[in-house]
């Protein structure tokens, strides 16, 4: 019997279309085991979306876990070569507690990881690939992009108090400037940086729309180096077919401890949750005793179940 493409359902079509996209961009398919030693996840549990992990004991007595995340396994199982760039792509299932039911579910993910020498061009290429991935999933899509260093440094200069900083990050992620303002009013914080963080929280738009205002904020906050870095990556994306789908948004603060630099999330019209998530994770690499840098993203195939793939 001949293989007929139309026999595939929409999510299978998407998985193959993404794989083709990543292979064309020079990524090597990477397969991994369904389980890993539990120890890997315990040491890095802050990086995981949920702390709940399915575990079992291997015949040799070792505690094993069904993989809740792909990135950690890829980092662990690859030799540290900071002078080279390794480009890997995957389709894997991860096992996590679903936020809706509170029960474990098997979640299919496709994605890419670039490990090694990550420069501005590599960051721009990964962001561009994220845009192309979203274009495969829907006609109308948005990739929100943040450069964490700008926000993190502003918050650091606002207060030394860890509890307050955590609260500030929470308010920024909710775009909640009213409670942020109250917090600044009720605590002895650096007033200049309070105002800057409020302004950063309000920023939302295409690079063309928001970069002039952001430049003023960064000039005022002594964050020119950080602004230049963001501008440098954005300049490499100029002329990209999907450039207008980028939105600069500092409310993207997921896992500020592990991610650094650029982070992003993708949305497709008609899907109420994000369908793509990724960023740079150099801090995670250092924590795992690796000198390489890393950037990658995953596409949440499950969230795209109701979308028709052309």
């Amino acid at each position: 019997m001949l293989f007929d493409y139309n026999m595939l359902d929409d999510s299978e079509k998407l998985i193959y279309a993404l794989r083709a996209l990543y292979r064309q961009a020079g990524y090597t398919q990477y397969h991994m085991s369904k389980f890993e030693e539990y120890d890997l996840y315990v040491r890095n549990k802050d990086f995981l979306v949920s702390e709940n992990i399915i575990t079992f004991t291997d015949t040799n007595g070792k505690l094993i876990a069904l993989k809740p995340d792909v990135t950690l396994s890829i980092i662990k199982n690859n030799i540290d070569e900071p002078d080279r760039l390794k480009k890997l792509c995957y389709n894997e299932n991860v096992y996590r507690v679903s936020s809706g039911s509170g029960c474990f579910s098997e979640i299919p993910q496709s994605g890419v990881e670039c490990i090694g020498c990550v420069d501005d061009q590599c960051i721009a290429d990964v962001i561009s690939l994220a845009l192309s991935s979203l274009a495969l999933a829907g006609q109308n899509f948005v990739l929100e992009l943040s450069f964490l260093d700008i926000l993190a440094k502003s918050i650091d200069r606002m207060s030394d108090d860890k509890t307050i900083r955590k609260q500030v990050v929470g308010y920024v992620s909710e775009k909640n400037t009213h409670d942020l303002e109250k917090l600044c009013g009720n605590n002895p914080l650096n007033d200049k940086y309070c105002k800057l963080v409020e302004k950063l929280t309000d920023i939302y738009g295409t690079p063309r729309e928001v970069m002039p205002a952001l430049k003023e904020i960064c000039d005022e906050g002594g964050l020119n180096k950080e602004y230049q870095k963001l501008e440098s990556v954005l300049s490499l994306l100029r002329g990209n077919k999907y450039e207008d789908a980028i939105r600069i948004d500092f409310s993207l603060t997921d896992n500020i401890n592990y991610y650094n630099g650029f982070i992003f999330k993708g949305f497709v019209e008609g899907v109420p949750d994000h369908v793509l998530s990724g960023g740079q994770y150099d801090s995670l690499m250092r924590r795992m005793n690796k000198d390489s840098s890393g950037i990658g993203f995953a596409v949440y195939i499950e969230n795209l179940e109701d979308i028709t793939i052309e």
Partner: peptide, 10 residues
């Protein structure tokens, strides 16, 4: 506001 709606009905 829903986070995704904010992106498409900004």
């Amino acid at each position: 506001s829903n986070k995704a709606s904010y992106k498409f009905k900004t």
